[in-house]
Design a protein around this nucleic acid. Structure first.
Lengths: 293, 293
DNA sequence: TAAAAATACTCCATAGGTATTTTAT
DNA sequence: ATAAAATACCTATGGAGTATTTTTA
């Protein structure tokens, strides 16, 4: 048999008071009950912890050593309970955040993560870059608590909670030497014969459906890029044109010009995706904060 | 209410198995009992630790954190029990050893302490130099487990256990230029008019009673020394002569000669003193070792 | 339908309470 | 004589067992 917390509490209290009567009072039990506890503990351990000479109670050497350990265990138990309770309120624990390369622009991540860390410093933050599709997988697998993705209005799986963080205007990126680069505004219809660069073969990341609706034709995607920076590099190299979110104009490689289009393409929402059935209270805090920070 | 070890064990086992049935089997209880344990724990903490969806058991975030703490607490409890039991066998804990300056000679301390440490490395050793009278006080106060003192046969308080460690032959220390210094053996009767140096006014440390019995007169103690080295320094300075234990001839200051006396003085026992009622099992091991090492 | 956890209940071990005894000062 | 722990005995809480129900994959 192994000791219970109750035995440790009893022993530590007696060791502190060195008096069974007072210790029992502090423990809100009666003295004989305490004597039994200590006796039971000593029997379990097979060692005498307290030397009782009717008038004086003293620790034995095993008792002295066991006292240190028992006190530490009791303190750790208290802190473990507190930790679990704070985790239940979302004030402690771990939050794993995913983002796609595209959402790394515009400083929204540092703004949200910074504000969250300031309000709840005991939540450990793990931040991983992941392609949007992998983020959805990771969310379902429980490896991710929340993911930031660029999303057109269509894609909304039912088990995900969507929170729109911000919306980005779409602009046209084209080589600086392109004839249209000097225009302030370019009509979409003028782009029918252009070659487009996108992330995926379907162009879904950049809202191909919205494009067709606004322009009346499907853009011809001829090149694919791995990430936004590579996309703009390809544009700058003259391989084609692309519609990109306005925040990407910052830090663009040389040789790329940006112009507005007409009619304007729908704004691109950046959404935070999270599982509705998550048990991580820190996630609720984080998602709640998105609207307020 | 606060959790008991039983709750931690139940929770850790379920968290490891992620299956109530198997966990219950490992805990040698029945599944409904385990369900109750976990439910009770969650109620106490006020947080859900395990997410049960009939077919799949998974840890919540509070559960993940509580698991780490609970595992650590269980490991520490095991080691605390083991520590107390080893202390009960004298294999762990602390042993406080006292010695008087006189007993520091002859390497008996390093021999005993070294051998003890090699057999029981988990016993922390505290070694303090103390005057013999203070050692007896410290022993009674529980501040010392064992004390090494030079003792003539007379002084043996009843609550102390005496173990003779070794016995020292007595020799005469006298200034090198003293007329008797060239003798191989000096008759005690030739010392009647000499001035003696001792530790205490009564000369008890050096066996004045034995001296009187052997020589037929009480030596005239004219100077007192704080410790053996100072005593020999005074002898070398020509302030008087002294009877000293043979081990002190090693490392003596210059100007001191040593000669045997006739009849020989009784040998001086070095004893280890310890309280008979000590609760420190390491002490029993140590005292037992004295005879064997 | 089957596997697994929860619920309902019963029983007994044991923690804790009351009264008393023992023992050392 | 008194203070304090131990012992004896009783009571009742709650932990564990058996049988059954509920739930979802």
């Amino acid at each position: 048999m192994t000791p219970e917390i109750r035995h440790l509490r009893a022993f530590v209290t007696v060791a502190e008071e060195l008096h069974f009567g007072r210790a029992a009072a502090r423990l809100n039990i009666v003295q004989p009950a305490l004597s039994m506890q200590i006796k039971g503990l000593e029997t379990m351990l097979g060692v005498s912890l307290l030397h009782r000479t009717r008038r004086v109670v003293a620790l034995t050497e095993p008792g002295r050593l066991f006292l240190e350990e028992a006190s530490r265990i009791l303190r750790q138990l208290d802190s473990a309970v507190d930790l679990a309770q704070r985790a239940g309120r979302g004030e402690a624990g771990r939050l794993t955040i995913g983002y796609s390369a595209a959402t790394a622009h515009s400083g929204l991540l540092s703004r949200l993560v910074g504000a969250f860390h300031r309000t709840t410093p005991d939540v450990e933050l793990l931040i991983r870059e992941l392609h949007p599709a992998l983020q959805r997988e990771a969310l379902l697998a429980g490896e991710l608590d929340v993911g930031f993705v660029v999303a057109d209005a269509a894609s909304s799986p039912p088990e995900f909670e969507r929170t729109v963080v911000e919306t980005w205007q779409m602009v046209l990126a084209l080589p600086a030497e392109h004839p249209l680069a000097t225009h302030a505004v370019v009509p979409l219809s003028a782009l029918r014969d252009e070659r487009f660069i996108s992330y995926s073969a379907l162009g879904e990341d950049l809202g191909v459906d919205a494009f067709r609706a606004a322009a009346g034709f499907v853009p011809a995607v001829e090149h694919l890029a791995e990430n936004p920076m590579m996309l703009l590099t390809l544009v700058g190299a003259g391989l084609g044109i692309a519609t990109v979110p306005a925040p990407m104009t910052r830090g663009a490689p040389p040789g790329v010009a940006f112009v507005a289009v007409e009619p304007a393409l729908p704004e691109l929402p950046i959404v935070a995706l999270a599982r509705c059935d998550s048990t991580n209270a820190a996630l609720a805090r984080f998602v709640h904060g998105i609207s307020n920070w």
